[in-house]
């Protein structure tokens, strides 16, 4: 066990555990968009930033990827953290300001508009679909392609994939409802979105799908 300090409170946490887990376990609200316990953390959205003091150094770190270590001091509410998160959410708003989840997170952080030009993208590149497909479905039908401002999600070679099993894990995980199964999979998927945006499976009993 490691002894750490969070917002001035001394706590014990498992050495190496993701800091985010510890914070949430303490009931601290940490906004996230790219995090889901079912898959490995990835550090894409940067909303979970906290200030970590380790020895003489203090830095901003993505808590979802930061492993707990003896003696660190964490601040989740400092001015620096608040400012950084607001900047991050402004950038996310600029990229996909039409996405309800992004708007909601922005609002929680007290941000309603972005100073940056709007791009109206559907996907925020959190990579949850990629990780879900690889780690839960064990398939790997989608991945990032290109990079920087040209980065997007795609199945191999930009054509619908034969590897995709149509499980719709990516659809469940996507915080932006941006995944279109029929664009990923070469054959029609047994899963269909109904009008409420829920995924329905034609193979399993309908009640079995959440």
């Amino acid at each position: 066990m490691a002894r750490i300090k969070v917002d001035g409170v001394q706590v014990e946490a498992r050495e190496g555990a993701p800091l985010l887990e510890v914070l949430r376990g303490m009931g601290i609200r940490v906004p996230t968009l790219c995090h889901n316990e079912a898959v490995s953390p990835y550090g894409a959205c940067r909303l979970c930033l906290v200030e970590v003091a380790s020895g003489p150094r203090t830095m901003l770190a993505a808590s979802c990827l930061y492993p707990v270590a003896e003696g660190i001091e964490v601040s989740t509410t400092s001015e620096r953290v608040r400012r950084a998160r607001r900047m991050v959410v402004e950038l996310l708003l600029a990229r996909c300001g039409d996405v309800p989840r992004v708007r909601q997170v922005a609002e929680e952080l007290g941000v309603t508009r972005s100073r940056f030009p709007q791009r109206h993208e559907a996907c925020l590149l959190c990579g949850l679909c990629v990780r879900g497909c690889a780690q839960i479905a064990g398939v790997g039908a989608i991945d990032f392609t290109n990079r920087g401002v040209h980065m997007e999600l795609s199945s191999a070679f930009g054509v619908p994939s034969e590897a995709c099993v149509g499980c719709a894990t990516c659809v469940y995980l996507c915080p932006a409802d941006a995944v279109r199964l029929d664009a990923i999979r070469s054959r029609p998927s047994p899963h269909r979105m109904d009008r409420s945006g829920r995924v329905r499976c034609a193979v399993c009993v309908p009640q079995a799908t959440p």
């Binding site: 690889a134 790997g140 039908a141 990032f144 392609t145 994939s161 590897a163």
Partner: peptide, 13 residues
């Protein structure tokens, strides 16, 4: 033995 999407991802990066 890795997904084609992974290779494509590297090749376009």
């Amino acid at each position: 033995g890795i997904p084609a999407s992974r290779v494509y991802s590297l090749a376009t990066f």
